[in-house]
Design a protein around this nucleic acid. Structure first.
Length: 383
DNA sequence: ATAGGGTTAG
């Protein structure tokens, strides 16, 4: 019953149900906890967690997964430490979950610590933890270590191959990604839709348009895999980066499935890259239907028109933003420097070494100009 | 037996 409400996201009813259970067992508690965590109510989730009379490893993992989903790495880390202090042995799920958090945050130090802990604790690096390690190292730019983890795994599955392919794609090693794909097939592992997302993005990053298109067509021709929206988004990106915007638009218009925000966003991004305000207007109009309040879309469109010198169009976008009450919300990003995750935003006045940072940027800019790169300093800043 | 956990575009 509790689970039913949790599934539809009705936390109030779920909690009411839970309250009527005379002696809730740990499973009822975890179900409730997950309901809160998955709805992003992490503070309430923590309160539930603290109230649990009996906690097992699943309870800890659920709380940890909750923090990681909400990108609260500090809380996740503290919880993990608290878990060890209380003598609760992390299981493979704990490690997989924690490592996946490190992968998302590019937290190489913590990720490496977890890896060492796994080795030290005598755990076998099983498929799940191994796969999480591959992704963690790959996303932290340590592609060779990712490969090493893969090679040392006792057994691998489709997800391991996919992780390795996606990891190489992410780091720009397109040829390697494709040769891993061949290796995988030679080992008798059949690709799935995730495999192709990795392969297509590899081709896209490397500008390998023809290879990418061939892979895309081969999906339904040689394998029983029907392309979904994510694949189309990759192909739009592939064609778009190569400047083949007309073909990209034609592909989207002729798709057997409905285009989503990701697909129109890819196209709009490509229009910026190749200065195409006409296709940009088409893509933006569609994109606004999905995301009427996402500032970056408007900024992107405005920049495309600014670059073309169409100030009337720039003004039109500005009016659109005002009418729809769209505000510029500064985004934050983060990087790990010496054991510490530092968060920052553009024009960050709280950054103590801002003057130095800007000086380095000016030097880099000058160097880029020297080798012939023109930077777009005249544009609106995306925040 | 029931709860949770690894891969996926820009």
């Amino acid at each position: 019953m509790v689970e039913g409400f949790v599934r539809v996201g009705d936390l109030v009813s779920a909690f009411e149900c839970f309250r009527r259970i005379p002696n809730p067992n740990v499973i009822s508690w975890v179900t409730l906890l997950n309901g809160y965590c998955k709805s992003g109510c992490i503070v309430e989730g923590r309160r539930i967690f603290d109230q649990m009379p009996e906690k097992n490893v699943v309870s800890w993992n659920a709380m940890l997964a909750g923090y990681i989903r909400c990108l609260q790495i500090d809380e996740a880390y503290q919880l993990f430490m608290m878990m060890r202090k209380e003598g609760k042995d992390p299981d493979w799920s704990t490690f997989a979950c924690a490592l996946s958090g490190c992968a998302n945050l590019a937290a190489l130090q913590v990720g490496t610590q977890l890896h060492n802990l796994l080795l030290k604790s005598g755990h076998i690096i099983d498929i799940f933890a191994g796969n999480a390690l591959i992704t963690m190292y790959a996303r932290c730019g340590r592609i060779l270590t990712a490969r090493q983890v893969f090679d040392e795994m006792v057994s691998v599955d489709l997800v391991s191959w996919n992780s390795l392919i996606a990891g190489h794609a992410l780091n720009g090693y397109a040829k390697a990604a494709i040769s891993i794909f061949q290796e995988m097939k030679k080992n008798g592992v059949a690709p799935d839709e995730v495999t192709f997302i990795g392969l297509l993005s590899a081709c896209s990053h490397a500008g390998m348009v023809d290879d990418g298109l061939e892979l895309f067509y081969s999906m339904s021709r040689d394998y029983p895999i029907t392309p979904v929206a994510e694949h189309y988004a990759c192909v739009v990106d592939l064609l778009g980066r190569a400047g083949r915007l007309g073909e990209a638009l034609k592909l989207v218009k002729g798709m057997p499935i409905k285009a989503n925000a990701g697909i129109w966003g890819s196209l709009l991004g490509a229009c910026r890259m190749h200065k195409n305000p006409e296709v940009a207007n088409v893509a933006a109009e569609k994109l606004f239907e999905f995301e009427p309040h996402t500032t970056s879309n408007y900024v992107l469109l405005s920049n495309i028109h600014a670059e073309a010198g169409s100030w009337g169009e720039v003004e039109r976008v500005r009016v659109l933003m005002k009418e729809r009450g769209v505000w510029k919300q500064p985004a934050r990003s983060w990087i790990e420097i010496k054991n510490e995750v530092r968060s920052f935003s553009s024009d960050d006045s709280t950054e103590p070494r801002a003057a130095e940072v800007f000086m380095v940027l000016r030097v880099l800019n000058a160097q880029m100009r020297n080798i012939g790169h023109m930077s777009d300093s005249s544009l609106l800043d995306c925040g």
